[in-house]
Structures are given as structure tokens and as C-alpha cells.
Design a protein around this nucleic acid. Structure first.
Length: 299
DNA sequence: GGCCAGGCTAGCA
DNA sequence: TGCTAGCATGGC
């Protein structure tokens, strides 16, 4: 049996507008088109490119496929993706309760109430985006990602708009680092990304394998990848595996946000940041995400 | 023009 | 173990 839409039930606290605002934060984003009341995304379901429009309903979300009928198996895959993308299976109410007594986070959780930790359910996309973002400004990182996706990603045009899906590891595994240099990737970044694509294509690395490991083993496996250090491993656990305890303690943006909200002139030491991690124990990833969110202002 | 960006690796002591 | 140069480029 096929259909062209389905609904997802969502439990509070959830604010789709807050999520849309976050999704609209960059003009160079190519992986979705976020509008006033909906976000459109091209889902690559085992090679079939399905354009879905995600909107709010009274009980949660509805995903409409304006040009396609989808099978129940495809629906299951898209639902899994959207649940991970918006972190819908997380008990965020527990996070809100925890910060009720926290002077630093309480104002942020009130301001962005219902914002979920928006992630990258696709492992290759999460790793690639993390590597791209290393040691460069976010705006330049978006530029690099856009060039990468528009060069190597599948796309589909619907009603005059081109929608992009993330490049497959199979495509990237065949590249030579020199082919990414014209896009202004450093040779190092190119090597890391192609190496990760090759491990995935060889079957040595997959989301399913990683998910089956206990958290510390997953972390070690991520660290074993060339180009992945502590920051990237924590970032991927946070954004791809919805691990609420993941904590990129050395992150520059996290330090900047803490410094700003604490009114500090000097920069925080590593030990101080570690203490904040302990203060938010169990919800380090959400604390980090809300602090990051506060850096963007009124996006 | 110097310094920092949502860091990491390799090489050295 | 712990420290550092080098990576590439944009933006303030």
C-alpha cells in the first residue's frame, strides 16, 4: 500500500517554529529549504530521491510528499530520519526540569523553549560536516559544504527549485584529494573525508555498527578515524546519535558563549569548562546546543 | 595586518 | 605523555 503523507506524534516540549528558526540560520545551507511554516528536504531512500515537506499539526508533524507515493518501508525510513533529525525521542522535559534551578541555562531554555537538538542523522554527512568545520569560520564552512554538495550530491528539481541530497560515500571514496582542492578544501580535509568515505564503502564503518557499541567504545572507534579527534567524536555522538551526554568541551563556540553569558573578559580554562560539563551532567549536549543557539541571536 | 575560527596530525622531546 | 608547527582561508 502506498501513500503521499504521514504524521508523527510528538511529545512536549516541542516548538516547530524554534526548530525552523534554527534551520534558517544560514543562507548557504543546501541540505534543506526552511520556510516560514515548513521545511522541505530531499530524502535519499536507498537511491530513490523523495521530496518531503514537513509541517506542524495539532499533535506533532506531518510529512507530505507532493510528487510521490511512498511505500510503508520508505515511510518507516523517512520517519526514523525525521525523529533523529529533530531528536523527537528525547525526554527533553527532564532537561527543562534540570535547568530550572540553573541561573546560566534557565534564561536560554525559556527563550528557546521547545527547541530540539537538530542533528545530522546521516553518519557520512555528520562526519564530513564536522571535518569541514574544523578550525575555520562557520560561514566559510557552509560555503565549502555547498560547493561539495553541489559538485557531488544527487539532486532533483521540483517546481523550479533544485533540492540536494548529501553525496554518497561511494561517490567520494573514488576521489583523489586533489579533486577537492579547487573547491578550496585543504589537502588534509580532503584526505580525511575521502578516507572516511572509503571506510564506509568498505563496510568497516557504519551507523549501525557504531550504534551497537557502548558509548565509550563508540567514542574510541570514532577517534580511530583519521581526522577525528575529541571534538569531532563528541560532535558526532551529539548530532548523529542523539547522545545527550556528549560534550565537545574544547569547542570554540561553547567557550565563546560561556564567556559571554558569564560576563568574563578573560577566556575560560579547560578545567572551568569541565566543571560546567559536570554541572549539566546527563544533558551536556543540550546545554551545549542551547549555548550555541544563543550565539546566533535572532536568526 | 595579526589573530582567531564549532581542530587534528605528525614529529619531536 | 606532553608540546607545537603546519594546515588553508575568511572575517573582524
Amino acid at each position: 500500500m502506498s501513500r503521499s503523507s504521514f504524521e508523527i506524534h510528538v511529545t512536549a516540549p516541542f516548538d516547530f517554529q524554534q526548530c525552523l528558526q534554527f534551520l534558517r540560520r544560514s543562507n548557504d545551507e543546501v541540505m534543506h529549504v526552511a520556510r516560514e511554516t515548513s521545511v522541505s528536504k530531499l530524502f535519499d531512500v536507498d537511491g530513490r530521491l523523495l521530496l518531503g515537506d514537513i509541517m506542524e499539526t495539532s499533535h506533532g508533524l506531518v510529512i507530505v510528499f507532493p510528487k510521490d507515493d511512498i511505500t510503508s518501508a520508505e515511510q518507516a525510513q523517512v520517519e526514523r530520519y525525521v525523529r533523529d533529525w529533530f531528536d523527537l525521542d528525547q525526554d527533553v522535559a527532564a532537561f527543562v526540569r534540570m535547568v530550572e534551578t540553573d541561573e546560566l541555562l534557565r534564561p536560554l531554555v525559556r527563550e528557546y523553549e521547545g527547541l530540539r537538538l537538530i542533528g545530522f542523522p546521516d553518519l557520512f554527512e555528520a562526519l564530513t560536516w564536522a571535518v569541514i568545520g574544523q578550525q575555520i569560520t562557520l560561514s566559510f564552512a557552509y560555503t565549502l559544504k555547498r560547493r561539495f554538495v553541489e559538485q557531488y550530491g544527487p539532486s532533483r528539481e521540483v517546481d523550479g527549485v533544485t533540492y540536494w541530497a548529501f553525496p554518497n560515500p561511494e561517490t567520494i571514496a573514488l576521489l583523489d584529494p586533489s579533486e577537492l582542492r579547487p573547491l578550496q578544501f585543504s589537502t588534509r580535509k580532503a584526505e580525511y573525508i575521502i578516507g572516511i568515505a572509503q571506510e564506509m564503502t568498505d563496510g568497516r564503518l557504519s551507523k549501525q555498527q557504531l550504534r551497537s557499541e557502548p558509548p565509550d567504545m563508540m567514542h574510541e572507534r570514532l577517534l580511530s578515524l583519521r581526522g577525528v579527534g575529541e571534538w569531532t567524536a563528541a560532535y558526532v555522538r551529539m548530532k548523529c546519535f542523539q547522545d545527550p551526554t556528549a560534550f565537545p568541551a574544547a569547542d570554540a563556540g561553547l567557550h565563546q558563549a560561556l564567556k559571554h553569558h558569564l560576563g568574563r573578559g578573560d577566556k575560560l580554562t579547560a578545567d572551568e569548562v569541565r566543571l560546567y560539563g559536570e554541572r549539566f551532567s546527563g544533558w551536556e549536549a543540550y546545554a551545549t546546543f542551547y549555548l550555541w543557539r544563543s550565539l546566533y541571536g535572532d536568526v
